[in-house]
């Protein structure tokens, strides 16, 4: 009986922590003014919110098949959410005419300073790489 109440308070604690992170994420998305900052707040808050809420639900279910499926949801979400966050950030960086200053780092290119800008290209330890593999580091645009 006491064990059941301990489980209830563990579930309540985990759910409240998850809700706290999610509220922070939504609040951050509202408060920031640039899309890249909003993406940062959304990605961090969503990751931790999903983790803690699903951990709470797993504790509530115990050691059954449902807990394994919930764990699979956490696993898939942690794999997929950084990819979608990266795609959204690339959309923003490629198409926004008022982007402001960002740093672009690519491996295997010559170092170049644009006039008054912040483009920085590093060549450390990648001289041995072929140009094709160096170009492919940035993403899957091809």
């Amino acid at each position: 009986m006491v064990g059941e109440w301990i489980r209830f308070f563990a579930v309540a604690g985990l759910l409240l922590v998850g809700m706290f992170f999610e509220v922070l994420a939504v609040f951050g998305v509202q408060k920031f003014k640039k899309a890249l900052n909003r993406m940062h707040a959304a990605a961090m808050g969503d990751t931790l919110g999903v983790l803690f809420i699903f951990l709470g639900l797993m504790v509530m279910r115990g050691f059954t098949m449902d807990s394994l499926k919930l764990f699979l949801v956490i696993l898939f979400f942690w794999m997929a959410s950084p990819v979608s966050g990266h795609m959204i950030s690339r959309l923003e960086a490629m198409t926004n005419p008022n982007l402001g200053e960002i740093s672009v780092i690519r491996m295997g290119e010559k170092a170049e300073d644009a006039a008054g800008g912040t483009e920085a290209e590093e060549t450390e330890a990648s001289e041995k790489e072929s140009p094709e593999s160096a170009n492919r580091k940035g993403g899957c645009a091809e």
Binding site: M94, T95, P97, L99, V104, A114, G117
Partner: peptide, 9 residues
């Protein structure tokens, strides 16, 4: 991305 930065500058 670099082209966008260049256009913006």
């Amino acid at each position: 991305v670099e082209d966008n930065l260049r256009r913006q500058e």
